[in-house]
Design a protein around this nucleic acid. Sequence first.
DNA 1: CTAACATATGAGTTATTATTCATATGAACG
DNA 2: CGTTCATATGAATAATAACTCATATGTTAG
Lengths: 113, 113
Amino acid sequence: MEAKQDKNNEEMLNAIINNQPPEEVLYEVAELFKVFGDSTRIRILYALFGNELCVGDIAEVLNMSQSSVSHQLRILKDAKLVKFRREGKSIFYALDDDHVYHIMEMGMEHVEE
Amino acid sequence: MEAKQDKNNEEMLNAIINNQPPEEVLYEVAELFKVFGDSTRIRILYALFGNELCVGDIAEVLNMSQSSVSHQLRILKDAKLVKFRREGKSIFYALDDDHVYHIMEMGMEHVEE
DNA sequence: CTAACATATGAGTTATTATTCATATGAACG
DNA sequence: CGTTCATATGAATAATAACTCATATGTTAG
């Protein structure tokens, strides 16, 4: 009885293991959320929610140093969560696409319960 | 001209600052995503996607130690991403609600592009 | 009650990462 | 061109957080 039970459980576990998304995809998903998982970056993203802002303005909105904002923008840029364009001396940042908005909204919803 | 421009920009920045969600909400959103932003926890969540598993089984699926799985389950539990019930000596974990599914699906979608 | 099993937890170590400071790059304008 | 303004970046430090190991808690079976 026990043995049979164990065998079934073993089979079930194997089924689950085989149905998992590939290791590397899971890793990428974690990396994606990791980018959202920092309060400075979240503040930047919400500052850009519907707005296009240059680095200095973002720093002013967040009341943080230009340098740390710039460092975090690079991470957001690498993750393709923000896009940017140059206009003279300034560089304007904006949220990259609808996915970013959706993920932010979903996070907000989960928190506001 | 410059001065007027600056004034408008200042007003715009103030408008943005005032429209930001409260500091503490942003902090919580970041904390939420931080929980999703670790590959061990993401692997646990996907193992639980549609399944109810006990700790030992999760450890087997992930091929990790019982201890580290348990530590991460505590974090998932604190964040209300998983729920659990006891059955005899075992404790079975499952995803807590639809939000969790949605957030995971959204992350997956963003990655698979 | 005690042995055996499943899970949880605390302390310690190591790895990761955000911020600061100093400086580099790059564009505009006289 | 060279100066100024806006942004980016490298190195160093400081703060977080994951994993391991040992052990504690809690449940069931005998």
